[in-house]
């Protein structure tokens, strides 16, 4: 991946994928499936997780920013935007840091990102309402998110294998 165009294309495709996964998730998983308000499976985190490994810090943060902005532009409301921006950025930073330590597998990194996401969400909510009581709700969201993070990691493993092989294929050099 030395070619600049190839890089940009790859980043663009990944951004599109994360956006599509966000929308697809909203469509195929009914809002009431999980009894925890504010909780989502976060399928698009597959893309973020893989980007963190394949592309590094700047493109990963860029993908999060673009995805959040695009969802907002397609008819999200302002508070939901602030929630997902806070959560999304914290999550990607957490994943980048955990990856740098080289202590953890894809599973640990994903779970860490998910946990950071829920902490970011609750913090944004508490900030907007001025009510610290919202933090009492953190454990439920946090534990559900960690479980979701592990599931995301599980889904990411075969996809990561495929993409890693793809980018390292002879033709891509």
């Amino acid at each position: 991946m030395k070619n600049r165009t190839a890089k940009l294309t790859a980043w663009g495709v990944m951004t599109a994928l994360s956006l599509v996964l966000t929308v697809a998730e909203a469509m195929i998983i009914p809002a009431g499936l999980f009894p925890i308000p504010g909780f989502r499976l976060g399928l698009s985190n597959i893309v973020i997780l893989i980007s963190v490994y394949l592309f590094g810090a700047i493109p990963s943060v860029g993908i999060v920013l673009l995805r959040t902005l695009a969802v907002f532009a397609f008819g999200g409301n302002l508070s939901a935007f602030l929630f997902s921006l806070c959560g999304g950025l914290l999550a990607v930073f957490a994943m980048l840091v955990l990856r740098q330590t080289k202590l953890f597998s894809l599973f640990g990194v994903s779970a860490g990102g998910a946990a950071a996401h829920s902490i970011g969400q609750i913090s944004a909510g508490a900030f907007l309402t001025g009510s610290a009581r919202l933090f009492l709700y953190l454990p439920f969201l946090l534990w559900a998110s960690i479980a979701a993070g592990l599931l995301i990691a599980l889904l990411s493993v075969p996809i990561y294998r495929a993409l890693d092989a793809f980018f390292k294929a002879p033709g891509s050099e």
Binding site: V23, A26, M27, F74, G75, G76
Partner: peptide
């Protein structure tokens, strides 16, 4: 998914 996503934006 991306094709069907365009059709149904209102349900969000």
């Amino acid at each position: 998914f991306s094709f069907s996503a365009c059709a149904d934006n209102a349900s969000i």
